[in-house]
Design a protein around this nucleic acid. Structure first.
Lengths: 366, 366
DNA sequence: GTGAAAGCGCTAACAA
DNA sequence: TTGTTAGCGCTTTCAC
């Protein structure tokens, strides 16, 4: 096809090797030679072949990122972080999207999927089964997971149990005792560990404070905005009418957006919680919408908080325990890259997360 | 390193060529041979080398996707669509993220970036300058852009002017005459064409209805949620106090979320628009928040609509002109794939978009 | 239906 | 500092 290293060699009268070295700017080549080669390469419109280089070196200068689905805030952010670090190192990023539960997860994992196209792998929040692990191991690539801990693999991520504790502590510190939890499995994300860890963290923290965890206050928000709305509706169905009249005027603002009929949703019987802790900001945002639809003022009637540090939450004043997925992505990328370069696989520290108190949490009114 | 085609050959007593053919299931190979080869390959844990195959065939079975930034709703969705189609075809997806204005766009475009690692390219909403175009052309890869039309390249995307017209028609049909527009350049997205086209479409449609386009009602929402909030605040600053008292009770719901101080923002002097048309749902969502913060009921005091079909908008009842970025991604991927396979580059039809009337638009109250 | 041999475009010893 | 010589692991004529 097009121009190869050979052409440059003939044009310059140099050998292929020298051209190759010059192109890579190796110090053993005369500066003048380098310049000349570069110039000729430019004139000829030379485009290097990563396949050839890869074949020769055994290094593809690319790392793969496996995501359960892409359209999730956390994955997108983490992907961005991985990407930034790879770009810095001159590595390409090959995206392997499992496409959710509907996607042919099995086939995707067929070892041929990897085909030695990448030198390492970053797995986003997945828990692999034995077969999958085995197939991946087969490629002998450095691997690291972002998100939940995975057996046998190094991982970067926050301490989910601790994060949940921080949230509960905040709420309890404000005076809340009736705290509901919105979590649930992220079916689409196929992430198993994180939801459980956060929920366990919630339960543990509640127990630590001597507070009861009512089963009717553990709602499923499917880790999505819409799921959060649903969970909120269920949670607030019980005492909706009461709260509305009391504070609607005081809040000073009204929003009719999609409010119709919300109060009619079926919900847990009994009293309404004074605070709702959500395992993700997207769900928390949904719960806030549900609260408004149910005629409840936030945080006067009910406090709501999440986990993540989502941009929308910032704009809207959502209290949260913020983590930094971009940094996690970068850290993961650096780790694989280091391992690709032969470094020892040292254990990784938990990523930081910190409480960000904004406008959706406050002391309970009763 | 590990197992190659050769090992399988020696173990089975066949030749490399036959093994190669068998592995690819070519019809010229005996079925029994195919089975045998496959079995041995499995036992040996054989992993094909895409680099070697690529070198030999000149085909990498991978296509590159160039995005200005990844963390934008549209790009993520489109990326998902491209990915789905590529996976179907057994192609890998190499992600080239320009990383926004801060990212070294120039360096990224260096032709060596592409290195023949991919057989084709899908460009998300970018307008390239001459140099960039030239460098990309150099690789002689089939290319297609998603989003705005780009000179000299095929593109898939909605007819932005028409979409804006549909929106304006809807609003005018409802009785609105005082319509504001929230658009602006998406600096991060580095997309030039689309914002202009939508704005032009808005202006054109307004003129067609004989309606005035006030310059103070053309606000910059930076194509983001936060930008939408800012734009909305500016737009609503003028008549905030008046609207609030009138409808707060009627809306039946109150939200205190981050409401403090919004009314104090500087805004355009004069009267408030009765409707706001936003060039994206994210901005529209922001405008809705700003309206609520300004004490305005939606759609009683002001109608708001966007473009996109964002999931959040659905939950929240946002009226919009929905497009399908996933389908656009698929279409683009199919087009490159076809061209990679030698098909003629036939022109692509505009992608469909349709009005989705929900709860944020209604007749004007004055 | 299978084998032999010649590369694909580059890098990497080893010489010079 | 530069050139020579082998491959890297696969596909692909062209024979058999």
């Amino acid at each position: 096809m097009s121009t190869g290293i050979q052409e440059i060699a003939t044009v310059t009268g140099l050998s292929k090797s020298t051209v190759s070295r010059a192109l890579r700017g190796m110090s053993s080549v005369a500066d003048t030679t380098i310049d000349q080669v570069r110039r000729v390469a430019d004139e000829l419109g030379y485009v290097p072949s990563s396949a050839a280089a890869g074949l020769a070196t055994g290094r593809q200068r690319a790392v793969g990122v496996v995501v359960p689905v892409i359209d999730r805030w956390f994955y997108v952010k983490a992907l961005g972080g991985v990407d930034a670090e790879l770009r810095r190192a001159g590595y390409d990023l090959v995206l392997y999207n499992l496409g959710g539960p509907g996607g042919d997860r099995d086939r995707s994992f067929r070892r041929s999927m990897l085909r030695h196209r990448v030198d390492g792998l970053v797995l986003l929040s997945l828990v692999l089964d034995e077969t999958e692990r085995a197939e991946l191991e087969l490629t002998r690539h450095p691997m690291i997971v972002i998100g939940g801990p995975a057996p046998g693999l190094r991982n970067v991520g926050v301490d989910d149990v601790a994060v949940a504790r921080v949230a509960v502590d905040h709420l309890v510190g404000l005076g809340h005792r009736e705290i509901a939890y919105v979590g649930g499995q992220d079916e689409a994300g196929m992430n198993v560990a994180v939801p459980w860890l956060r929920r366990d963290g919630f339960t543990l923290a509640m127990h630590a404070h001597g507070l009861p965890v009512r089963s009717t206050w553990i709602a499923d928000g499917r880790f999505s905005f819409a799921g959060g709305v649903d969970a909120g509706r269920a949670l607030f169905a019980a005492g909706a009418a009461a709260g509305a009249a009391g504070t609607a005027g005081a809040a000073g603002a009204a929003g009719a957006v999609g409010a119709a009929g919300a109060a009619g949703a079926a919900g847990a019987a009994g009293v309404r919680p004074t605070a709702v802790f959500c395992a993700s900001d997207e769900m928390a945002l949904g719960v806030v919408v549900a609260a408004r639809q149910a005629g409840l003022a936030v945080p006067e009637d009910v406090s709501v908080m999440g986990i993540d540090g989502h941009e929308y939450g910032e704009v809207v004043g959502l209290t949260t325990v913020a983590q930094d997925p971009v940094a996690q992505g970068r850290a993961a990328a650096r780790a694989v890259l280091a391992e690709v370069d032969g470094a020892e696989a040292t254990p990784l520290a938990a990523s930081p997360a910190h409480l960000v108190v904004r406008a959706t949490t406050g002391p309970p009114s009763r």
